[in-house]
Amino acid sequence: METRASYVLVGGFVLTFLAGLVAFAIWIAKVDLDAEYRDYDVYFEGTVSGLLKRSIVYYSGIPVGDVRDITLAPDDPSKVRVWIRLRAEVPVSDASIAQLQFQGLTGVAYIELSGGSPDAPPLEPHPGEERPIIQSAPSPILAIFESAPNLVNEAILAVGQIQKLLSDENIASVSGVLRNSDRLAGNLADSTDDLETMVADVKEILAQTKTAAAKINQLVENSNALIEDDAKKLVTEAITTMQTATTLLARVDGMVAANEGAVTQFVNTSLPEVSRMILDLRVTARNLSRLMSRIEQNPAGVIFGTKEAEYDLKKRSTVEDGN
């Protein structure tokens, strides 16, 4: 006996099953059909190693989008253009910053967005650009990784310097210093009596210094008294002397004014003559000196003259006197 199937029932069941299967798939894929998205570009300087398509984009730790594509910047190959898609409600503005971050030490990279304000106008694409561009910032972890080789080199150099510092010779020197310090401390401990004596001497010196200071103070007071008494007299006498000198100068000035003509004549005529007279006196003194020398050497020769050979023009030779 052939079972008579109900095609309508089967068809309905199949359709219901398929609709449930689709609903289940959508629920599994977490597809939000009502969600709206906006696309942006982020240009990173240097490498974006670890970042892949479908990598997640976070905003304040919340996944708000994913990476759609990674290409080199068309105008500058040193930059990397990352096309990201964000949910439309994510506040993206000019102040928003995209930074490449890494999850732990696994090397899985993602993009972290920060900044932005809900009141700020939405970011719009520049003319000629397909999508709005979010500013990027270098990743601090990436900077650490890039500078890691230098850090290693510096660490190697530091270790070398420490090795030099801790050489056997330096260690021996430090040991010597420590021994000397120990000896010094011992000596100090042993010379406590000497220190007490020294302190006593210092006290005595300070006492003597105090006495000397008192005497100096007394000397200064005596000097002040002396200056106050004798200096006043001295100043009084100086004033009197100056007044006398002023009076004398006034009298001399008056005398010169009264005899200006005579003084002028003396300066104009007599002074040159005095100068000439001095010259003549010099000549006379020189002649007298010469004469006195001759008298001292040969008095008779001065009176009678010295015996001197004269030149005879006829004989053309010198001849003695009387010849």
């Binding site: 001197e308 004269e310 005879d312």
Partner: peptide
């Protein structure tokens, strides 16, 4: 004054 050879000096006789 008369200047002779060898730096000798004398005077002229009769003049």
């Amino acid at each position: 004054a008369v200047a002779l050879e060898n730096r000798k000096r004398t005077s002229l006789q009769g003049v």
